[in-house]
Structure formats: structure tokens, C-alpha cells
Design a protein around this nucleic acid. Sequence first.
DNA 1: ATTACTAATCGCCGAGTAA
DNA 2: TTTACTCGGCGATTAGTAA
Lengths: 234, 234
Amino acid sequence: MTVANAKSPEPGRPRARGDALAVLKLLALAGADHAPVVLTSRELGEKIGVSQQAADRYLLALEKRGLLTRAFAQRRQRLLLTAGAMELLRAEHHAYRRIFEGPAKVSFSGIVASGLGEGRYYLSQPGYVVQFTERLGYSPYPGTLNLRVTAEAMRRVGLLGGWNGIRIDGFPASGRTFGGATCFPARMNGHACHLIHPDRTHYKDVVEFIAADCLRERLPVKDGDSVAVDLEET
Amino acid sequence: MTVANAKSPEPGRPRARGDALAVLKLLALAGADHAPVVLTSRELGEKIGVSQQAADRYLLALEKRGLLTRAFAQRRQRLLLTAGAMELLRAEHHAYRRIFEGPAKVSFSGIVASGLGEGRYYLSQPGYVVQFTERLGYSPYPGTLNLRVTAEAMRRVGLLGGWNGIRIDGFPASGRTFGGATCFPARMNGHACHLIHPDRTHYKDVVEFIAADCLRERLPVKDGDSVAVDLEET
DNA sequence: ATTACTAATCGCCGAGTAA
DNA sequence: TTTACTCGGCGATTAGTAA
């Protein structure tokens, strides 16, 4: 009679614990983010210290989670990472950058622009005011200061998407819905304020700011003036 | 009678798979690399999606592996990462940098210096020659070119320690032992060569290079000349 | 309140193997 | 060859609980 599973394969070995992230990292390093990578389950298993069967199960699981697409060319599968997988890896990258290079910083300049009425109306809503007071620590001056910025600055502002902002939730009131937003502590010409990024923004080249005081009076600035904005990850 | 362990706690849940790296990363983000972080096993468990018991076992395991030191102040433990843990995290950081920012590059300049006799003797050893031929793709000119560099350049060369170099193994011959070394593809004034870093180097401000041809003749350079070196991670 | 041990059990791993 | 299924067993995990 044959003993099917005699005992643990290698009892003393440290166990590589090849989890999903390790596989994604390996594939990304092999360039699977932009070009298919040919890799058999056996090869993958050797690299991360697990059996061919386990490696294959990892790939199946990643495929099911939508992180990996597989194509079967003749005999060997071609692996390609999805955007979702790269998003996951980018978050890891961001965390390690934070550890070894400190909080990320973003700076840009913009031109003070009009756009008052809207901001004043929204910021006066009690549903917003109570959240601002609780989460920002102040009740903002009822009006946003809008800055017109270049496309390059807008790209840098887009990086904030990966940061942990202060969340302002949407709510229903007066028979309509007020949308949510995310705030980021900022300095405008050195003056403390918050960049406020509505979930559904209407602008493509405008960034909005709120502060406890009227920024136009405190800085002071007027339409057309150029101001410098500095943000630091919290 | 009471049923002690009725069934799996949360069968359908995605399983956070909180492995060692995730714990170290979390602690490093909390600043546990330079100052003790107060964190209970329950809090850790919540953060990584496992029970208090599992989280505690992770900490015990990390401590046993020499990656974490724990101190028990009144009730809550104070956690501090060791240099070994930071080394591990740095390797991860390097991998992610590679994925999103491309291969690392190092450039520096140095002054051509003498130091021939030794290099010629070592490079003539058949035990080395066979390895160079196999792993570098050429049989090197029997003599190293030595560059004297600044402390800052030396620091940058030190970064190569985290790269994957081409390994040249040590061996016994002629009744003594010849030490191993690691080679890195490089360009000196644009000319392809290899930086060779012996395991036990004798110099503190000198970097050694080998190439298929005599670099002094091919570049050409002589003692005292300044040359530019460029290395790219492979 | 903590940390951490014990017992029960869940699920992942690798062997064998089909396609 | 390759991918990928089933299955037995071991290790990891959790609940309960001691200290």
C-alpha cells in the first residue's frame, strides 16, 4: 500500500508565505504591467518557495480577483497585470516611500479667480458646517477661494487621490442631495487653509480652498494675483 | 453542554492574510523605526484583520526572528523595530521603486590610480577566469583599473549592496583561499566594463574595475585622469 | 484592562493524477 | 510537457480562558 501523504514536506523550512502581493510584485518586476510575461506555475512556485499546485492556485485566485489576466499561448501561459493590480502595488509603493522618504509634499501656484456665489451657498449649508467644525476644527468663512492652475499643477493635485484626506460626507437636504468632498490641509502663501476637492467637481483647471478667515482679506489677494500653495501628506 | 468552537468565525470573509511584512510596514509607518510605538495586540489585530490572538502570535514570532523588540510599560507594550526589520523593509522599498521608477542609476567620477600588481595576480587565477568567462561573457584583461573617489561617491557605491550583482565565488587554490566578489555592469567614459567589489575589500576610497580590454589603453587614460562612471541596475 | 496559553477546527499545502 | 483537480494531513486561526 502506498502512503499518499506521509508527512509535512519540509518541516523546518521558514515557509515563504507567498501571498498575493508577493506574486504581483514579482510579476510587476518582470514587466507584466505593460507586456505579457511567460511564466509557468512551476517556475513561479520555485521563485516564491511553494509547489506548482500552490502557485497555480495563487494565479487562479488573482485572476478571480480581477488582478491578473491569463492567455494560453501554445503551452505556456502569458500573464498580464490589470490596472487594479497596479493600483494595489502603487499603494504599497506609496507606503514604503512614506517610510523611507517622509510624508509626500506637493507645491504649485495658481491665479486667484472668481467663482463666489456657489461656494458661499454650499458652505452655508448646516450639513456641511457641522462636519467642517468637527473634522477641520473650524467653521469656514462662507466662501471658497478658487485658484486657476496649469495642467501640470492639476496633475500634481491629482496625486492627492492616493492620500488620506479628511472626509466630508454628502447628505440630503431641502429636497436635493449635497455631494461629499475630501479636504487636505494646505498653506496658501503660508496661511493655513484646506484644499477642498468635491467628489463631483465641475472644474478642470480650478482648485478650491476654504479657511477659517476670508483668505482674500487675510493674505490679502485679489482676482488675478498669483499665490503659492503647499500641501504635505498627513 | 456548551459548544466550545461551533464553526469558522467568518467563513466567507476575504482573509486579510496579515503576514510579517504587513505588520512591519504598519509599525514603520507609525514610526516604530525611531521611537517606540504603543500598540496592543487587539489594535494590531483589528488593523490587519485577524484576531487578537493571531496578532499577538505575529508579534511573538517577529520578536523571535529579531525584527522587533518589545517593552512592557505599565499595561501596553511598546514596540520598536530593529535594524534587521528596516533592512527587510528597505529591500521592499527598493523593489517597488524599481517597478514604478525604473532601474536605479548611480553615477560618479573618480581619479585613475595605481594598484596594478595585485589585480594582475588575482585576475590571472584560473579559478576566477573561468567564472568571469561564464558569467560576464568575457575573459578580462589581467589587471584592474582603480579609481580613487570621494566619500560621497563611496556612499553611492555602497547602494550597490542592495542590487543584484553578478556573483564570483571564492575558491581554494595553491594552498590558500581566494575570496569571492560581486560584479556590476558599468560604463567608464561610455566604455563597457564591470565594477568589481571583493567581499573583503582593502580600500576605503578606491573602486576597482575590470573589462575585456585594457581600459587604460582603450579610453585612453593615465594615472591622475578623471573619468565618469555610470551604473544601471540590471 | 492587558498578554498569551490550550484546545478545537478551518483551510492551505503538496502528492497524485487527469486532461 | 502544461494547467488544474481531488484529497489527506498539518499548520494556522479562533474562542475560551489563565495570569
